[in-house]
Computed example of a mutant assay.
Amino acid sequence: MTAQPTTSDTAPDPSAQGAALRVENVVKRFGALTALRDVSLRLDKGEVLGLIGDNGAGKSTLIKVICGYHRPDAGRIHVDGQEVVLRSVDHARSLGIDTVYQGLALINELSVFHNMFLNRELRFGPLLNNRAMRRLAREHLADMGVDIPDVGAEVAKLSGGQRQAVAVARAVYSDAKVLLLDEPLAAMGAKEGALILDLIRDLKARGDVSVIIIAHNYAQVLDVCDRVNLLQHGTITFDRRTADVTLEELTELVVAEYRNRRKPSLRTRSDDPDPGP
Rank of each mutant, 00 (worst) to 15 (best):
F238R: 08
G96T: 14
T246Y: 04
D271S: 07
L231G: 06
L36G: 04
A176F: 12
S60C: 12
L231H: 10
A165V: 15
V84A: 02
A11L: 08
R170Q: 04
E121C: 05
A205M: 07
N260E: 11
M116F: 08
P14F: 00
P126W: 15
V65F: 11
S88P: 10
V228R: 01
R227P: 13
A256D: 12
T237K: 13
M1E: 04
K177D: 12
R267D: 01
A243V: 15
S88L: 11
P264E: 13
A142Y: 10
V79M: 10
H91K: 12
D90T: 15
G234D: 01
M133D: 06
V168A: 03
T10M: 06
D274T: 15
E154F: 14
L141I: 14
P184I: 05
N25Q: 04
M1Y: 14
F117I: 15
A16Q: 02
V48L: 07
R22V: 08
R163I: 15
L199T: 08
E24Q: 03
G68D: 07
I97N: 09
R138F: 05
K59H: 06
K157D: 12
A35V: 05
R227Q: 10
K263Q: 09
L199M: 11
L250M: 09
D90W: 06
E121S: 04
V146F: 00
H78C: 11
R120Y: 08
G234I: 03
L122A: 01
V39L: 04
D202P: 00
Y69T: 10
P126F: 14
R134W: 08
L231W: 09
